[in-house]
């Protein structure tokens, strides 16, 4: 059954190492958190969720994922990108949006379920779904670990997709580091011109940036590019 689902989403994923990795991840999830079953649901281009990896492949579990085409906590989590934790499957208030799903999950022996968005920045690529057999809510730590594991699944999927967005995110990371690097370089340049320490150079840089309503990074770039002479900046 899982292979049929994989076929359905192989426009999204054509790397079986990825499936292996996600299966290992799901399994590890059951060890790291007190949960009995875990599945990774991936969204297709039409916005439908498909399970691509699970901690085990019992039909009853896979059905729980597959019925979430239409209803279930994963559908809701995917829709608004927010996690739904500690859903007591016996609690009609918590399961009002997905009574059919809740009933099947109870039949499969589960008491609680959690749905976490697999999201990087504003992009949600899928949902991680966890099931427990005991009615025990997550601790604060459990919640962080679950989110981190959902992050790992997200990255695993995104690292295999060549996306314009991926390059954009890399560019932002590089820009964040470069902006810091250029400030250090500008400190060095001014310190040498003024024959002062780098802390004093930074003070001068910051004062000039504030006085001229320039960003520190922008001013530093100008210093490094030689567009601003060090004599134009007042030595503090």
């Amino acid at each position: 059954m899982l292979s049929a689902v994989i076929d359905a989403v192989d426009t999204l994923v054509d790397d079986y190492d990825l499936i292996d990795f996600l299966q290992t991840l799901c399994h590890r999830c059951t060890e790291l958190l007190d949960v009995a079953a875990v599945g990774v649901m991936l969204v297709d281009q039409g916005g439908k969720l498909h399970v691509i990896a699970a901690s085990d492949e019992h039909t009853r579990l896979l059905e729980l994922f597959s019925i979430q085409h239409d209803e279930g906590p994963c559908v809701e989590t995917y829709r608004d990108g927010t996690a739904r934790l500690d859903i007591d499957l016996d609690e009609p208030d918590r399961t009002a949006g997905f009574p059919g799903f809740a009933e099947r999950a109870r039949h499969a022996g589960f008491a609680i379920t959690h749905a976490l968005p697999m999201r990087l920045r504003e992009r949600t690529v899928g949902v991680m779904n966890l099931f427990g057999t005991r009615r025990q809510p997550f601790t604060e730590t459990d919640s962080r670990v679950a989110h981190a594991l959902a992050d790992v699944a997200t990255i695993a999927i995104l690292q295999h997709r060549t996306l314009v967005h991926g390059n954009l995110e890399q560019a932002q990371l590089q820009a964040a580091l470069s902006s810091r690097i250029v400030i250090e370089q500008a400190k060095g340049i001014l310190a040498e011109h003024w024959q002062t320490g780098v802390d004093e150079a930074f003070e001068g840089l910051r004062r000039h940036a504030r006085a001229h309503k320039l960003g520190l990074t922008r001013l530093s770039r100008q210093v490094v590019a030689g567009e601003i002479d060090s004599t134009d900046i007042q030595h503090p």
Binding site: E184, Q185, L216
Partner: peptide
Amino acid sequence: AGRWPASVEEKESVLYRAVVHQAAGMISV
């Protein structure tokens, strides 16, 4: 990385090798 530029104003650098880039600036002069 998206939130990081906000920390640029801090004097203490977040870079492990801040001193390397400061030195490069000095050497370039």
